[in-house]
Design a protein around this nucleic acid. Structure first.
Length: 367
DNA sequence: GAAGATGATTGACG
DNA sequence: CGTCAATCATCTTC
């Protein structure tokens, strides 16, 4: 008495449906045939011809040009530029002037580090695949539909007057409808590519910290040239090579470093001791005059930070001492000046307490 | 998850 | 064009 588990579906339902379909098809064919052979058919046909004579004029002139052509061209250009769209030979003779696209695309990314770009390329090719398969689907559908409509019209032409031009126009209409759909596809593809670009190619977003090696190399240079931390072009190239980064990254790094160091030297004291200790004193950059001696003040003063190193032999000793002192975080020693003066006129809005700072000095040298 | 660190970008300036 | 200063957006740390 338990209810039967699962009543097996009637296996013949499908066949019944098929049969019905065939039946109705046959029926339709028969009816069509009957209509074709109807004795009134010629008369009906001629009447329809007359009616058409009168109305055809009003139909004519409706054809609209395609205004979105410019936009389409833009999208094509972009897809072309991104390599999503292969240059497939144009069929219509009209718009051949795409040639100059190369210059027109501003999309170029500033930095050409193609390291991270493999991910981008992979995703791009995914997009390309989807785009092409969708495009193929649309074209296929368009062909089928066109074929279908053409057959239909030819079929109908037995019953009513249908000129070849009409068929052609209908085909044109279908094509334009489908190309509108394709344009949407192109548009969304473009959007996808733009999103991808901004997410993967925009260096800001995909920021990676430099390798230890790079940081080391840069810091070594910076602290060993504290009095004039402006590497020449050659020096930058060398640093870039050693650190495995680009020259512009080196420039960025030095730009950031100078600013940040100047802003809060106290924070960098420790780092400074590490790197100045590491690199043997290098006197290469002697150019700077030495009379910054003005800062005789406190022993620890050290302000060692900024410029004092090259001349005095014991400079980095002081640094070490300083390090051990660990200047309080807040009170950076901002010695505003220094001979080299690369950080000379910084106003330092935030930190005002100069007096108290243990490590710092403030010699201010105005002299 | 907030705060700090950090690489990159932008606009002004010489 | 290189630098500075401010700012953005992400990464790292706690």
């Amino acid at each position: 008495r338990a209810s039967p588990p699962a009543p097996p579906p009637p296996p013949d339902v499908l066949q019944q449906i098929m049969a019905i379909t065939d039946q109705s098809l046959d029926e339709a064919q028969a009816r069509k045939h009957a209509l074709n052979c109807h004795r009134m058919k010629p008369a009906l046909f001629s009447v329809l011809c007359e009616i058409k004579e009168k109305t055809v004029v009003s139909i004519r002139g409706i054809q609209d040009d395609d205004p979105p052509d410019a936009q389409l061209l833009r999208l094509d250009n972009m897809l072309l530029a991104e390599g999503v769209w292969r240059p497939e030979p144009e069929k219509t003779g009209r718009g051949g002037e795409v040639a100059g696209a190369g210059t027109a695309t501003p999309g170029g990314c500033p930095n050409d580090n193609s390291i991270e770009h493999s991910d981008y390329r992979a995703k791009l090719s995914q997009i390309r695949q989807i785009y092409h398969s969708e495009l193929e689907k649309y074209e296929q559908a368009c062909r089928e539909f066109t074929m279908h409509v053409t057959n239909l019209l030819q079929e109908q032409s037995k019953m009513r007057p249908v000129s070849p031009e009409e068929i052609e126009r209908m085909v044109g209409t279908i094509h334009s409808k489908f190309s509108a759909i394709q344009m949407q596809l192109k548009q969304s593809t473009c959007e996808a590519v733009m999103t991808l670009r901004s997410r993967l190619l925009d260096a800001r977003r995909k920021r990676r910290n430099f390798s230890k090696q790079a940081t080391e190399v840069l810091n070594e240079y910076f602290y060993s040239h504290l009095s004039n931390p402006y590497p020449s072009k050659e020096a930058k190239e060398e640093l870039a090579r050693k650190g495995g980064i680009t020259v512009s990254q080196v420039s960025n790094w030095f730009g950031n470093k100078r600013i940040r160091y100047k802003k809060n030297m106290g924070k960098f004291q420790e780092e400074a001791t590490i790197y100045t200790g590491k690199t043997a004193v290098d006197t290469t950059e002697v150019g700077v005059s030495g009379n910054h001696t003005s800062c005789l003040s406190t022993p620890s003063s050290g302000s060692s930070g900024p410029f004092p190193l090259p001349s005095a032999g014991g400079a980095f000793l002081t640094l070490k001492t300083l390090a051990s002192l660990q200047p309080p975080p807040g009170g950076g020693c901002l010695q505003s000046q220094a001979q080299g003066g690369w950080q000379g006129a910084t106003p330092l809005p935030t930190t005002l307490p100069l007096a108290g700072d243990p490590g710092g000095i403030n010699s201010n040298a105005a002299n």
